[in-house]
């Protein structure tokens, strides 16, 4: 095990030399790249990376360019998880047989797969489940923008109730998405994963702590990263951090972790809890909820968020 990178404060962190490059084609203000930068900068170990088809992959590997200064592979939509699991299994085998090149000596590479919520919650789900069942030493990061952003904003099973998407449009007869968001964090914890956590890029300290904890954990680690999408959530590109703050401070995206499938710990308690209404009101995808006929949905939203927060607190207290 290599030494953990020491990151005492933001000034010290800012001396990191990024292994992710600009002039990728992600939208101005995209949170995907803020998350990726925070994660990659959390370690100085060699990186082996993969990405599923989706905004991150499509925009960082545009022929003839790559935006990655580390080993990186893309195969398909559903298999960033198995691509990285394969690399990890090969690495382990070569190590056991003493066949690793001398340049690998004393190093401990980190194997990280990235996928969007479409790739994670829906299309790549069984591949991820298999990787976690087999216990690969890898980290899977879901960039959760709650929509199939790269293909123009179709709903996924991460899309929350009331969100207007191109396949769940709001209008005269519908308030938008009708299904509640799938609880992917709990599902991955139920795999018995040694470490799963929800993170958000605005809370960078919490993010770094969890990512480093994930790196130090042996076995499959799941990270659900909230990724505010200026294009599909419909807010101005300079508001990405402000929207993320609303999400974490209204507890729509509570920050917590679960160890060994059961031990739940809340890692961020907002000093001033913000009404869910403020979070919804800041985004075009929820605009229609503020019409008189749909306003009851905002109260329902608040109740769902309150109930879930209550549930998390009880589990934390009970230690199960």
């Amino acid at each position: 095990m290599s030494e953990m990178k020491k990151i005492k404060n933001l000034k010290e962190f800012s001396t990191s030399a990024d292994r992710f490059e600009g002039a990728n084609l992600l939208c101005p203000g995209c949170a995907h790249s803020i998350i990726v930068r925070e994660i990659l900068n959390a370690t100085n170990d060699p990186l082996v990376l993969s990405a599923s088809t989706g905004c991150l992959e499509v925009c960082t590997a545009v022929y003839p360019y790559t935006s990655w200064d580390a080993s990186w592979i893309h195969i398909g939509f559903e298999n960033s998880s198995t691509a990285i699991a394969g690399a990890e299994a090969m690495y382990k085998t070569l190590k056991r047989k003493g066949k690793l090149p001398a340049s690998c000596e004393g190093k401990s590479p980190k194997f990280i797969a990235f996928g969007g919520d479409g790739a994670t919650y829906d299309i790549g789900f069984q591949w991820i489940s298999g990787c976690f069942e087999r216990g690969h030493d890898m980290m899977y990061v879901c960039l959760d923008n709650e929509v199939y952003a790269n293909t123009g904003g179709q709903r996924s099973s991460a899309t929350p109730i009331g969100s207007s998407t191109t396949t769940s449009p709001a209008g005269r007869v519908s308030y938008g998405e009708k299904m509640n968001k799938k609880d992917m964090v709990q599902i991955m914890a139920a795999h018995g994963s040694p470490y799963v956590a929800q993170v958000a890029p605005n809370k960078w300290k919490d993010m770094i702590k969890k990512i480093q904890k994930g790196f130090a954990t042996e076995g499959p680690v799941y990270i659900n990263a909230m990724s505010a999408c200026t294009t599909e959530w419909k807010f101005a590109p300079d508001d990405t951090i402000a929207i993320s703050d609303l999400a974490t401070d209204s507890l729509v995206f509570p920050l917590y972790e679960i160890e060994n499938g059961t031990k739940l710990t809340i890692t961020y308690r907002p000093k001033n809890k913000i009404p869910v209404r403020d979070y919804l009101g800041a985004q075009g995808r929820f605009k229609h909820l503020f019409k008189p006929e749909y306003e009851y949905l905002i109260d329902e939203w608040q109740k769902r968020v309150d109930d879930y927060w209550e549930y998390l607190q009880r589990r934390e207290e009970a230690g199960v």
């Binding site: 000034k11 992710f20 803020i34 930068r37 960078w204 990405t240």
Partner: peptide, 13 residues
């Protein structure tokens, strides 16, 4: 030199 701009810039700029 708080570095907020550094950490939150999506484009390493």
């Amino acid at each position: 030199d708080c570095q907020f701009c550094w950490i939150y810039c999506p484009d390493v700029s």
